[in-house]
């Protein structure tokens, strides 16, 4: 059976969920061979094996942490040459897309980004994408070279599928371009203890209507009752009320949770672009004409300062 290369996103050996989803999708096309790079690469093997990786190619070198993107492209290319896979799958993060694109160019292939689903087809894998602020769904294929496809989080269920997951050291020679962009400093993001925005089953967001950084505690209290991630509109982020990493929308994260709760958000096209594919959508907004209500399964026209705390209290009561 053909092998499918899967690029592993991990933090010091802890595999991030989107990579496990990628393994599910990879198994539809062939046998997943994972590529894990950098600090802790070998520690990823057990988890990857549990989810279907037949082989885990690993490599660590200081270059991965000291220089931007290109060392990882060099390594992924080395893996590509060692395996000759039927396709290469990469998680659709900002960095993942850049790595995938440069690899595609080097190996003479096409690139599809931000797939939300993947199926085997007669002429190679068919990727589903959600475009124009999620108002259209497309089916695309790479028609030249080995398909290189980046896949968004929450695109498939994580499934256990035990496989050998034999660890093999990947041999990598860095190109002379690898050290072009130095990373001279790094400030890790502080953990909030809440789920990752893009991976969360429930997202509770606040917009301009929240009216101040201090009021975001109302949004966070609701999120914590539901075990949800917290999102924000660009208006709230631009006002400095919430960090940019939590922005939902075209220039923020795109999320596709089971439940999205928009509070004091009007529903501009650029915001919708990042949340329109959520399974269930709920909104609280005092303006009955707000476009967000066109999307909702349930909406409350009212003041979020009354509705949200009452909702939070009611959930607490019901949970007992």
């Amino acid at each position: 059976m053909a092998e499918v290369l899967v690029y592993v996103d991990h933090v010091d050996g802890a595999v991030r969920k989107p990579t496990l989803e990628l393994l599910t999708l990879a198994r539809r096309i062939g046998e997943p061979v994972a590529v894990a790079l950098g600090n802790g690469a070998a520690d990823t093997a057990a988890t990857l094996a549990e989810h279907g990786a037949v082989k885990v190619l690993t490599h660590d070198a200081s270059e991965y942490a000291e220089y931007l993107v290109v060392p990882k492209v060099d390594a992924l290319q080395a893996a590509y040459e060692a395996v000759s896979p039927a396709a290469v799958l990469v998680p659709s993060s900002a960095e993942g897309k850049e790595i995938a694109a440069r690899l595609a160019l080097r190996i003479g292939s096409g690139i599809i980004t931000d797939a939300v689903d993947l199926e085997a087809g007669d002429e190679g894998p068919v990727a589903t994408q959600s475009v124009f602020a999620a108002s259209f769904t497309t089916k695309s294929r790479v028609v030249k070279g080995t398909p290189v496809i980046t896949v968004k989080p929450n695109s498939a269920a994580v499934e256990a599928a035990p496989a050998a997951g034999a660890v093999e050291a990947l041999s990598v020679t860095f190109s002379d371009k690898a050290t072009g962009t130095k990373i001279t400093g790094r400030t890790p993001r502080e953990s909030t203890g809440r789920p990752e925005l893009t991976e969360a089953a429930i997202v509770v967001s606040g917009g301009r209507g929240v009216n101040g950084a201090e009021n975001f505690s109302i949004i966070e209290a609701l999120a914590d009752q539901l075990g949800a991630a917290v999102g924000a509109s660009r208006a709230a982020v631009d006002a400095g009320w919430y960090p940019h990493t939590n922005q939902v929308g075209q220039t923020g994260k795109s999320v596709s949770p089971q439940l999205y709760i928009a509070n004091g958000i009007s529903g501009a096209i650029q915001h919708r672009a990042g949340m329109q594919t959520s399974k269930t959508i709920v909104a609280v907004n005092k303006d009955a004409e707000a476009p967000i209500f066109e999307l909702v399964d349930f909406g409350v026209v009212g003041d979020l300062f009354d509705v949200v705390p009452q909702l939070t209290e009611e959930i607490k009561t019901r949970k007992g």
Partner: peptide, 26 residues
């Protein structure tokens, strides 16, 4: 290097329930 084989408009979301808060919205 890539080809779009089909594009379909996403069906409009079915209209949901909208209530006005009269003290019990939450």
């Amino acid at each position: 290097f890539t080809k779009v084989e089909a594009a379909t408009e996403r069906p409009a979301r079915t209209a949901g329930t909208i209530v006005k808060d009269e003290g019990e919205g939450g």
